[in-house]
Simulated assay, not measured.
Amino acid sequence: MLAGIHVPLITPFAADGSVDLAGLDKLAHHVLDQGAAGLVALGTTGETATLTEPERAAVVRVAARAAREHGATLIVGAGSADPRVTADTLRSLRADAALVTVPSFVRPGERGVVAYFEALAAATAVPLVIYHIPYRTGQNVGAETLRHLGGLPMVAGVKYASGLDATAVSLLGDPPQDFSVLAGDDVFVSPLLALGAAGGILASAHLATRDFVELAGAWRAGDVLRARELGARLARVSVTLFAEPNPTVLKGVLHAQGMIATPEVRLPLLPAGRASVEAALASL
């Protein structure tokens, strides 16, 4: 089972706008040295939609090398509304798992979501992690549907990015066997861990990585007082990091800390304002 804190890597850019692969390598090794269980390449936080195919391939190579050197898990984002395109990507993917978003914009209904993932599960060469993020996709998926999908042989888990709602409570109360529920809404990671989530895929864990790892360990060990204290503090950090569109504030903070060369993002994103970055730095 997938477990622990995974960091969905940003894509740092150089001053000329190119992908800063050396900066990416430095960041990947840093979060793994701090105890992260794995990396996610080509996630939303990585501004994947703005990368060219050669850039995407280079990002995966860097992340894969870092994960391999640390004995860590590598999850790679892969997905399209067309299951044929996604299946082709999955057949050639070299990773421990693939993060596949519920089809966005088309809103196929839950029956369509089931059919989509059943088709991918039959074709994939790597385990699938369903990315459930209805505020981006426009498609909600209920607990019973997620349980059904979790029973498919090649579905390993779900990145649950819908906060703390009735679906999360129901799913965590009776999850499928060997199915990992990973928190994907950073502010709510602590309560989801308290309910039994196996870990999280958290942009905020670029920062205070050790504390997020300790938070997961504290809930796992039943150290409620420590978990509550850490969870409350880290939730405040996450709130500041998402004050502007992700990953703009995060990049501003990493740049201020000297972790990346520039805070640049690609259109349609714009760099975060100074006040947002300063508020996030203060929360740390």
Rank of each mutant, 00 (worst) to 15 (best):
A78F: 03
G71D: 09
G231Q: 07
G273M: 10
F188N: 15
A183F: 02
A203P: 00
D20A: 04
P83H: 10
D178P: 04
G273V: 13
V158H: 02
L225P: 15
Y135W: 01
A97V: 07
A121W: 04
G200M: 05
D223Q: 14
L164F: 07
V31W: 09
F117Q: 01
T73V: 15
L172H: 06
E214G: 01
G138Y: 10
A208V: 13
V19P: 09
T48C: 05
G217R: 01
A227I: 12
S180D: 06
V237R: 13
L202S: 12
V106A: 12
H148E: 12
V7Q: 12
L2G: 10
L195N: 02
A67P: 12
L74N: 06
P8R: 00
E144K: 13
S162M: 03
D20Q: 11
E53R: 13
E110P: 11
A216P: 14
F13K: 03
G157C: 04
D96W: 10
D223R: 14
A15I: 13
S276C: 14
R233E: 15
G217Q: 05
T48V: 08
H206I: 12
L230G: 06
G252N: 12
P54I: 10
V40A: 01
H30K: 13
L250N: 03
G17P: 01
A66M: 10
P12I: 11
L51I: 04
L234W: 11
P247N: 00
S276R: 09
A194K: 04
A208E: 14
Y160C: 00
S204F: 07
L74H: 07
A168W: 01
A64M: 11
G173F: 10
L207S: 09
L270V: 11
G112P: 02
G142L: 02
D96F: 13
G258E: 07
D178R: 13
R147L: 08
T145C: 09
A97N: 05
D178G: 05
I10D: 05
V155Y: 03
V62Y: 08
V224C: 13
R147A: 07
L225A: 14
Q257Y: 08
G71I: 09
G138M: 05
G79L: 06
S104Y: 08
E53Q: 15
L192V: 05
S80N: 14
Q257L: 12
A282M: 10
A41C: 03
L230S: 03
E229T: 13
G157K: 00
V181Y: 06
S190I: 06
K251V: 15
